[in-house]
């Protein structure tokens, strides 16, 4: 991934463009493949799009949750601190599959009747809460890694606590937190496959259905795996480039 760190701007562009082109055009090369992949090309393309969409929605919400809870864990206000601790403890101590099922089955009985969540929304919420808990620890570690002198300098210059956090602490903490956050995002691409349990037709579900119709698990699951590999590679390239971008000011 050396070129990605050397030309972060280009790498980010290439990864984004590559990902979009891949999702857009995936059905074309797959359609040319022999049985049982060719006839199911559109299904694979749709599944891959759902997987990426699920990852992006849950991933970006998870970052926001992670930052909020990470800051909350360092709050001087103890009830907030306890609340964030409890959240992380709860999510990390229970299986993701259980969390997905819980949101899917419990949400209708908790929410008012006129709000109906789609299967996709349930999966996105559960995944966001899950990755958010893991992100919380990364963000907290990142914030703790920022030297106290940076805060003192900002405060001495008259910046408010909020300005100090947004302009000085958060950007510097991201440099430390980003590799771990990227790791979580790459896991999320794969974890999103658990959404198949609540009938979200994402990539794994597509693979499962196609092999169930064709009785040819090997080519079907190999194809599915290759698509996952391409997706995770795009996401890690993207985050590596972002890391390099944030790294400015660290090396001489």
């Amino acid at each position: 991934m050396n070129w990605a760190t050397r030309y972060p701007g280009w790498a980010m562009f290439a990864a984004m463009a590559g990902l979009l082109a891949f999702l857009w055009g995936l059905a074309i090369p797959l359609a040319a493949a022999p049985e049982p992949i060719g006839p199911a090309a559109e299904q694979f393309a749709d599944g891959a799009r759902i997987t990426v969409w699920l990852t992006l929605v849950a991933g970006s919400s998870g970052i926001v949750i992670g930052v909020l809870a990470g800051v909350g864990k360092l709050s001087r206000f103890w009830p907030l601190r306890r609340l964030c601790d409890a959240y992380v403890w709860l999510i990390r101590g229970t299986p993701l599959l259980l969390q997905i099922l819980f949101v899917w089955l419990a949400a209708p009985s908790i929410l008012p009747e006129d709000i109906v969540l789609s299967d996709f929304a349930c999966a996105a919420i559960a995944l966001a809460l899950n990755v958010g808990a893991y992100n919380t620890e990364c963000v907290r570690a990142g914030i703790l890694a920022v030297p106290w002198g940076q805060v003192e300098a900002a405060r001495a210059l008259g910046l408010t606590p909020v300005q100090t956090f947004m302009d000085v602490v958060l950007p510097q903490s991201m440099r430390v937190a980003l590799p771990a956050l990227a790791n979580n995002l790459a896991s999320l691409v794969k974890d999103s496959s658990l959404a198949y349990a609540i009938s979200v037709v994402e990539l794994t579900m597509v693979g499962y259905r196609v092999q169930a119709e064709s009785y040819q698990p090997i080519p079907v699951f190999v194809t599915t795996a290759v698509i996952y590999l391409i997706l995770t590679t795009a996401f890690t390239t993207l985050t590596a480039a972002l890391e390099a971008q944030l790294n400015t000011g660290q090396q001489r």
């Binding site: 002198g149 000011g249 660290q250």
Partner: peptide, 14 residues
């Protein structure tokens, strides 16, 4: 009141 620190404390990311 401005302050200058022993360890400079320049913002490393800027």
């Amino acid at each position: 009141v401005g302050m200058v620190f022993q360890s400079f404390n320049l913002f490393t990311h800027l």
